[in-house]
């Protein structure tokens, strides 16, 4: 199992001050799988994302990507190793246009001084710009790439974030609540789009509260509660599991 794992957490722990927010969490994500990370509010799902992407250093354990320990790799280098992510609250650059935001996602693909000095803003037919436009089209986003993103509606911006995360050609794509705030049609479109991404061999790790979205998309889930893993398996299994039910609904005695 762990031989084909693309991303593994091994005994990862993290404390903020005296508060242990992630406690000895381990799981393996097999290559190509659509993997869900769920749990009640405050369970530590976003913190796990931040630890995997290197926003914070981990206190103990290892984050292993394709067999390499990346626990101490600076966050800006992790994207070059095929790890890309989106954010729970939209974190697009508000003063940049759609195309510029998407081209920022290609930054790790830009090699050397020549790429850095290419005036992408002046060359609408340049390779980077064409790739960005094509990616927007593939995602079904029929919008003016020159539009400043702060002027766009929420659902569109949410999808642009996913496109931006895809521009680095990741092997593992981590999405933090990609369906939050979307209407049912947008949610269904997103799930269909993510399946096409998955079909191209990209491993997905998704944090999500919308269980029908998780059911539709994810093959396996890990359930976190108070920073600990309480379940790993299928979503149906999780829904039947007493510990998971207790985490979400409380104990029978209290009710």
């Amino acid at each position: 199992m762990s031989a084909e794992a693309i991303l593994s957490l091994r005994g990862v722990s993290k404390a903020f001050g005296g508060l242990k927010v992630i406690d000895d969490v381990s799981f393996d994500i097999p290559k190509g799988e659509r993997f869900g990370l769920i749990g009640p509010n405050g369970a530590g799902k976003t913190t796990v994302f931040n630890l995997i992407s290197g926003v914070y250093p981990i206190d103990a354990g290892q984050v292993v990507l394709e067999g390499n320990d990346i626990s101490t790799l600076p966050s800006r280098k992790r994207i070059r190793n095929g790890l890309s992510r989106s954010f729970q609250n939209i974190r697009l650059m508000p003063h940049l246009s759609v195309a510029e935001n998407v081209m920022l996602g290609q930054h790790s693909q830009a090699l050397g001084l020549l790429d850095l000095m290419t005036p992408v803003g002046w060359l609408p037919r340049q390779r980077f710009r064409r790739e960005a436009d094509a990616a927007l089209a593939r995602a079904g986003l029929d919008i003016d790439p020159g539009e400043v993103v702060s002027n766009l509606p929420y659902g569109i911006r949410k999808k642009i974030e996913v496109v931006r995360a895809l521009m680095s050609k990741p092997r593992v794509l981590m999405l933090d609540e990609p369906a939050a705030g979307l209407n049912p049609r947008e949610t269904a479109d997103l799930a269909a789009f993510l399946k096409t991404v998955s079909d191209q061999g990209v491993t997905l790790l998704v944090v999500e509260h919308d269980m029908s979205f998780v059911k539709n998309l994810c093959e396996r889930v890990v359930v976190l509660n108070f920073g600990s893993k309480i379940f790993e398996g299928t979503l149906a299994g999780a829904q039947a599991d007493p510990a998971v039910r207790e985490a979400y609904l409380g104990t029978r005695r209290v009710a």
Binding site: R76, H95, L96, M103, L104, G105, H107, T118, P119, W122
Partner: peptide
């Protein structure tokens, strides 16, 4: 003007808006 139109300028403007996300995107802040 040229500098700001370049990919380097794009990284500059991205840092202005959000340093954390720029770093995650691979920008050496």
């Amino acid at each position: 003007f040229y500098l700001m139109a370049s990919r380097f300028g794009l990284a500059m403007r991205a840092l202005h808006d959000d340093e954390l996300v720029s770093t995650i995107m691979g920008v050496n802040a």
